[in-house]
């Protein structure tokens, strides 16, 4: 017999029933679209007098951060709170316990406390995946080593789609330290899944060897790429890379790979600038580029909350199989 429940199940969005969010590669175009579509509703909610909805009442979300990241943690925290979840922040930095053991112990503690979702950032690639073996909770990867940062990629896709109305057929130049960037890995996968073209731009020392298998164009010269890009996505330079001698100097990096006023004028008229933050002004981009009208950097931050609400909404509902 058909019941009301079965009708509701029929209408479930494609992103529903996702147990974990570990890796953008695991998401199909229909799931990404469902996440971005729901995020639009959560974005509208942010403009209302009461920004909070009761949807996740009674659920507990734990932010488990083994690396510092105030902006990502705060974004996840606001997202969960606006959905009425209880939020606890567990900062594991500075733990004297050996890392692998401490992750497992922490996981088992959270499991015993009955948390429903764990948002985890860890310096080791694969740590969120490891976590899923120890806990029943939904696991959301908030950045693991050089591996993945899926919600950053999703908020970037949302921001691009919001601006251009679509992703299909756009061309995105991803510029800088791709080798060490989990943001780049996740974003490039997401863009390809959504049928956007990508050119990865950077010095050979900062591009992964496997970039040849990424289904993207590769350029070691920024200027020829500028004219055809709809989106110029600047990756953050992590200063510790300087000491590791991946780049000769900050000044040379800025000269070869940085966006400045001169390069800004070479972009096509409709092109936009994006950056995952935090920015190094004067390195990846000059101050006038960061504040240019076609820089979407503030939109990215604002959209982060809506996209994270969308992920929590689509993942945490319903009974676990």
């Amino acid at each position: 017999m058909m019941t009301q429940d079965q009708i509701a199940l029929d209408e479930r969005p494609a992103g529903a029933g996702l147990s974990h969010l570990l890796d953008v590669d695991a998401l199909g175009a229909d799931q990404i679209t469902a996440i971005l579509d729901a995020a639009r509703t959560f974005q509208q909610l942010a403009a209302r007098p009461i920004k909070k909805v009761p949807t996740l009442r009674g659920r507990t979300v734990c932010n488990l951060f083994f690396e510092d990241s105030t902006r990502t943690r705060v974004s996840f925290e606001i997202a969960a709170k606006r959905l009425s979840a209880d939020v606890l922040n567990f900062s594991a930095k500075g733990s004297s316990v050996s890392k692998g053991e401490s992750l497992k112990d922490t996981a088992l503690t959270l499991q015993a406390m009955g948390v429903d979702a764990i948002v985890v950032r860890h310096h080791a690639a694969g740590a969120p995946h490891q976590l899923t073996r120890w806990v029943d909770a939904h696991v959301l990867n908030a950045g693991d080593g050089r591996h993945q940062h899926p919600t950053q990629a999703l908020l970037d896709l949302f921001t691009i789609r919001e601006h251009f109305g679509q992703l299909d057929g756009l061309h995105v130049a991803v510029i800088g330290d791709v080798l060490h960037s989990r943001v780049a890995r996740s974003l490039v996968q997401g863009l390809r899944t959504m049928s956007a073209g990508v050119t990865v731009v950077g010095p050979p020392t900062l591009l992964p060897l496997a970039v040849g298998q990424w289904d993207v164009d590769v350029s070691h010269d920024l200027d020829p790429v500028l004219g055809k890009a709809d989106v110029v996505y600047l990756l953050r330079v992590q200063h510790e890379r300087m000491s590791e001698q991946f780049i000769p100097s900050v000044r040379e990096y800025a000269r070869l790979w940085g966006m400045d006023g001169r390069r800004l004028r070479r972009l096509s008229e409709h092109a936009v600038i994006m950056h995952p933050g935090p920015m190094n002004r004067g390195v990846e981009l000059t101050a006038d580029v960061a504040d240019a009208p076609n820089a979407l950097i503030a939109r990215q931050v604002a959209n982060g909350v809506a996209v994270r609400m969308s992920c929590l909404y689509l993942m945490l509902g319903g009974e676990r199989a």
Binding site: D5, E11, G17, T41, L45, G317, E319
Partner: peptide
């Protein structure tokens, strides 16, 4: 009005598509 975020069966049935309010 889309009421999906206010329903009492979210925990049981799960998310529904969201329309514009």
């Amino acid at each position: 009005l889309d009421v999906a975020l206010y329903r009492d069966d979210y925990a049981r049935i799960g998310p529904r598509p969201l329309e514009r309010t």
